[in-house]
């Protein structure tokens, strides 16, 4: 084949491969080999202190009857089902508000955006105190309006809500994103709608939302994938307690791997996680083809 190549192609191939060589090495060592190993480990009894022992599909079989596995999946789904819609609506609302003629708009945008820059560990530490039973401001406010005290992180019925609350504070990223895409919606469309007599609400439903739907879709997809990887927030705030009500999938994976040294089982969990993410991406992709307006945003 080399002979058939022109000098140009050969040179291109040489430099191309040279330039991408870091990726080839990185992909092989930090991705491909780990993936193959992980697949193998998932069929093994492996504590990392001893050599892996092949045990067939035992780990996957165990998973089916492992209540904690299902519980963490349910918890993760519950968190996503609450935090994503709430986060999207709130972020959209903020973006819409910011998109009006607003006094000191840059200032408000900064206020909404800054919390999303707070490192997760700091966020978790701060909100543990903000949600504190006695002196936390959330409870101070609840008492002030007469609802009474809620043990946000200690009561299994509320602990997850406490985490959702916390995560909502960090939606500034989405606000900025939505704001940017709102500003990209062509003025002309609104004018046309107004001429047709559409009121503000109708303009939003029929013009704004369809136009920015690719961004919303993208954000939701990333949110779902993100939920499957939630770790630092509950790890610092609740350690998965009480009664495993805030135990997330990744925390369980981490515990199995690094607290109980069941690396084989953890690898099986990791592969299921991988499949779930692949599946989610695929589903949303197919759905988006049907429902999402493919605007000229990209």
């Amino acid at each position: 084949m080399g002979n058939a190549m022109t000098g140009e192609t050969r040179r291109n191939t040489f430099y191309g491969l040279l330039f991408i060589s870091p990726w080839i090495v990185g992909f092989t060592v930090f991705m491909a080999i780990p993936l193959v190993l992980s697949f193998y480990f998932s069929f093994c009894d492996y504590s990392i202190l001893n050599a892996p022992v092949f045990i067939g599909a035992q780990n996957y079989q165990d998973m089916v009857s492992d209540e904690v596995f299902w519980k963490t999946l349910r918890n993760t789904a519950y968190f996503a089902a609450l935090s994503l819609p709430l986060g999207t609506v709130l972020a959209l609302a903020l973006a819409l508000l910011l998109n009006t003629k607003l006094f000191a708009r840059a200032f408000f945008r900064t206020v909404f955006f800054l919390p999303s820059l707070v490192p997760l560990v700091a966020l978790a530490i701060l909100w543990r105190e903000v949600l504190h039973v006695e002196y936390g401001i959330v409870n101070s406010a609840l008492r002030w309006v007469g609802i009474g005290t809620i043990d946000w992180l200690g009561d299994p019925r509320h602990a997850m809500h406490g985490l959702v609350f916390t995560s909502l504070w960090g939606i500034g990223n989405s606000v900025v994103l939505y704001l940017a895409s709102l500003q990209d919606v062509p003025r002309g469309l609104y004018e046309a709608a107004e001429v047709d007599g559409a009121n503000a609400w109708q303009r939003m439903v029929h013009v704004t939302l369809p136009m920015i739907s690719p961004v919303i879709y993208f954000n939701l997809l990333m949110g779902c994938i993100g939920a499957l990887q939630v770790f630092a927030l509950p790890y610092v705030m609740t350690k998965g307690e009480p009664a495993r009500s805030t135990m997330f999938y990744t925390m369980y994976l981490f515990d199995q791997a690094f607290s109980y040294l069941n690396m084989g089982y953890a690898s099986a969990l990791a592969w299921i996680l991988f499949l779930l993410i692949a599946l989610l991406s695929l589903c949303t992709h197919l759905l988006s083809r049907r429902y999402v307006h493919q605007g000229d945003l990209s």
């Binding site: 991408i20 990726w23 080839i24 992909f27 060592v29 930090f30 991705m31 080999i33 780990p34 993936l35 190993l37 992980s38 480990f41 990392i48 994938i225 499957l228 990887q229 770790f231 990744t250 994976l253 981490f254 791997a257 690396m263 953890a266 690898s267 990791a270 592969w271 996680l273 991988f274 993410i277 692949a278 991406s281």
Partner: peptide, 24 residues
Amino acid sequence: LFFAITLATMMIPFPVLMVPQYAI
């Protein structure tokens, strides 16, 4: 092909790789 693989690896999150990477 390489580039397609690159795009595909974007889907693989750290938790999936943490055990085997640890072993390596």
